[in-house]
């Protein structure tokens, strides 16, 4: 079975039957998963930081790294698969955004990532129908193109679905 593996700051999409879209070990990073029922396309971006303003040059080179440039980049990518470019009709799910224990404001990157992603989605009139965010553990996420089913795993825990 084919797999599209996404690293930090990567985005990708697939409509190939039998394929999976996967990202490993989301710590404070957040995976935005877009499912388009109409074209049966699955898209994902692995967001590491809330805003591209921190490093404009990097956001041009790797837009998926930041929430505010990553989501538009993913939508553009999915448009190549015939999806609606503004995300209309897509199902949104979010995973990741963990924080270390006893964190302070500075270290709440996971929480800030999730907030920034929700703000960007809101601009498109989109909102997550399901999310598995926060906590203090890392998540590996696998999405099936066939079923749109999202499988999460973390060492020392039984796998779960979203």
């Amino acid at each position: 079975m084919g797999q599209i593996i996404l690293g930090v700051g990567d985005y990708g999409a697939s409509n190939r039957p039998g394929e999976e879209v996967k990202t490993f070990a989301l710590g404070s990073c957040v995976s935005v998963i877009l499912l388009d029922p109409k074209t049966r396309t699955v898209g994902m971006v692995h967001v590491a930081l809330p805003e591209a303003a921190i490093n404009k040059a990097k956001s041009l080179q790797k837009p998926g790294y930041f929430a505010d440039t990553g989501i538009p980049a993913l939508l553009n990518e999915m448009a190549k698969f015939g999806c609606q470019p503004k995300g209309k009709g897509m199902v949104v799910k979010l995973c990741g955004g963990a924080n270390v224990m006893d964190t302070n404001d500075t270290f709440q990157i996971g929480k800030r990532n999730a907030l920034s992603i929700k703000k960007v989605l809101w601009k498109y009139g989109m909102g997550a129908v399901a999310e598995d965010l926060g906590g203090n553990f890392s998540r590996t996420v696998t999405v099936s193109v066939d079923t749109g089913e999202i499988l999460l795993s973390s060492p020392g825990r039984p796998n779960w679905k979203l």
Partner: peptide, 11 residues
């Protein structure tokens, strides 16, 4: 936080 721990103990 960058997703690079040593397994179950991460974070």
């Amino acid at each position: 936080m960058g997703g690079c721990g040593t397994g179950a103990d991460s974070m």
